[in-house]
Write a protein that binds this DNA or RNA. Sequence first.
DNA 1: CGTTGTGTTGACAACAGTCAAACATGGTGG
DNA 2: CCACCATGTTTGACTGTTGTCAACACAACG
Lengths: 232, 232
Amino acid sequence: MLGSCGSCGQCLHCEARSRSICSVIDPDHVARLAQYSHRLAVSPGKTFIQEGEAASDFFIVTSGHAKLFSLMPDGRRQIMGFAQAGDFLGLASGATYAFSAEALGSLSLCRFSRAGLALLRREFPDLENRLMEEASRELVQAQKSMMLLGRKTARERLASFLLEQHQRSPTREIVIHLPMSRTGIADYLGLTIETVSRTLNALQREKLIAISQVTQITLLNLPALEILARGG
Amino acid sequence: MLGSCGSCGQCLHCEARSRSICSVIDPDHVARLAQYSHRLAVSPGKTFIQEGEAASDFFIVTSGHAKLFSLMPDGRRQIMGFAQAGDFLGLASGATYAFSAEALGSLSLCRFSRAGLALLRREFPDLENRLMEEASRELVQAQKSMMLLGRKTARERLASFLLEQHQRSPTREIVIHLPMSRTGIADYLGLTIETVSRTLNALQREKLIAISQVTQITLLNLPALEILARGG
DNA sequence: CGTTGTGTTGACAACAGTCAAACATGGTGG
DNA sequence: CCACCATGTTTGACTGTTGTCAACACAACG
């Protein structure tokens, strides 16, 4: 019997396993992780990372979704990304966190102290590679977002967003379920909720998508969406 | 006598030293770097990294400036950042480069093969830390850009840009010299050249800055610029 | 001196934002 | 079970910031 991972109690069998830390740790030593980490449940809507506070911990999402965002003094909000099972939280931090994080629905995390993680990195070189690989992946994703926010139209942003959600879903079905509200989509894409709503409905009228429920969208024409998303 | 670094011939005495790779390598072993790297001069305007090509190399800027950008099929351009002495190029890459890079003026680089860098990382754990630290720094910077592109007005973007240039200059003088053209600024801030020109002149009329030459701007009122840049 | 590239300025257009109202949705308690 | 309310979403009318197109200024350079 495989049993559960020493660190998060579920890494060895949950969907997140293949991308989590456990996957690069020699099974004989997985128990070592438990010394530096513990599980954490976050209730819906709770902010569990506050921008600007000392970055003492590092997290791995084991189930649920979170939004990572930053606020301007007058309340304008930019969402940097959404994290789901297997994602790392806290790579983009110096001495303090560079973003806030809030649970979308209920959320389970695996928390590592940064000091503990530093020790583990020395002990397991594969872990080091895994973190670096993840940092590169996030950097590439951030650059895609910069192109989206700086140069794409509202239609192109929505098409890009829907395809991104599609690609991140475990099943890759053409029906996607959105864990965030219209406000979440707007703050991620640098738009207003009205523009998000109008644009989604325009895409529906053009038969590129079908909005069955507010948070459930069917991608009816993937090739057309892909052309739209990359801008021609 | 200190002499020059085995890898780039100048890391040990150039301005970039403190942030370069050499600074974390035991001086006795610095010559090992030379086995995996060599110097490279790039002429002005030359594209030396092509988005989408196999990411076989990793670079460190030793002098000059480069712009990192991505293009859409119809020619829309987003500049992800400007690199100067000491900056790393190529962290944001999977199998292929996620961006193109072009020299602004003449540029000197130190090139490492990725395979060689992988060997060096195993050999020098401090190098591993240095790369991770740099990846975090870039990630934080990318998130600031996302806020800028998604939520800031043209005035706020220009103020943010000028302060960023100010903070990156080695001298921290209030007179800053821009290595890029108006097109470069526009493509970095997600604006058009006309808006950049109009907005800079508006800031000048309001006595926040003075434009002595096209590429030379004096920051006359740092506190006001900071308030503007963060949005109130 | 023309010529070319780059930057500035003006008139106008358009995409997305703002404000407001109507409309769903979902939960709660009578 | 349904009325009620709170929250979130859609739709409409209008505004405004930024983009587009075009003319012009200016410097660098042969």
